[in-house]
Amino acid sequence: MLRAFHCNWSAPFRVRHPDAPYQVAPFELLTTVLSALFWQKNGGSIAMLCDRTAASFYQERGLSDLWDGGIRTVLDDIPPAIDPHIFWAAGKLFALRAFGAPCVMLDTDFIVWKSIEPLLEDTPLAVIHREDILPEVYPGPEAFPAAAGFDFSSLDWTVQPANTALSYFGDADFTAFYTDTAIDFMCHAQGADNALTYMVFAEQRLLAMLAQKKGVPLRALSDLPALFTSGQTYFTHVWGFKQQMQQEPALLEGFCRRCASRLHREAPDWADVLQKLPELSSYFDDLDQKI
Rank of each mutant, 00 (worst) to 15 (best):
E117R: 09
T181C: 02
V74T: 12
A220H: 06
A25K: 13
D151L: 11
F27Y: 03
P102K: 06
A126G: 03
P217E: 05
F38E: 01
R72A: 11
Q289E: 14
V238Q: 04
Q204E: 15
A176M: 07
A220I: 10
W9S: 10
R16H: 13
N8A: 13
F255S: 03
D68G: 08
F152G: 05
V24L: 12
D76K: 08
A267N: 02
L75A: 13
F5I: 07
K242N: 06
A20T: 15
G69V: 13
L207G: 04
A126R: 00
T53G: 07
S230I: 00
I291A: 00
A147E: 05
D286L: 03
E266Y: 11
C256I: 10
L277W: 05
A267T: 10
Q244C: 09
S64D: 14
Q160D: 02
Q247F: 10
T181A: 05
Q59E: 12
N42K: 07
V112R: 00
P141R: 12
S64N: 15
M245F: 01
F99P: 01
K276R: 14
S282V: 15
F152V: 04
T236Q: 01
F241S: 02
F228G: 08
P80K: 09
A54K: 05
S167W: 06
L287D: 06
A172K: 14
D68A: 09
K290Y: 08
M199W: 10
A260L: 09
H85C: 07
D180K: 15
I183C: 09
Y22Q: 07
D122F: 04
P161K: 08
F38K: 06
F150H: 01
R52Q: 15
A250Y: 05
P135H: 11
L210D: 03
A4W: 00
L29A: 10
F94V: 07
P135R: 08
Q289N: 10
E203C: 15
L125N: 10
L218V: 13
L227F: 00
S64K: 15
D107R: 14
A208H: 07
G149L: 01
V159D: 01
A176V: 09
E121F: 13
K92A: 07
D288H: 15
L277D: 02
D285P: 09
I82A: 07
M209H: 06
S45P: 05
V238M: 03
I78K: 05
I133V: 12
Q40Y: 06
D286G: 04
L218P: 05
T123P: 01
W67Y: 10
L75M: 08
Q244V: 07
W9R: 10
F177L: 13
G191I: 11
A172V: 14
F255K: 05
T164I: 11
L210N: 00
Q23L: 14
T179Y: 00
A202W: 04
E266H: 12
D68C: 08
H264K: 02
K214I: 04
A47C: 04
Q212R: 14
Q232N: 08
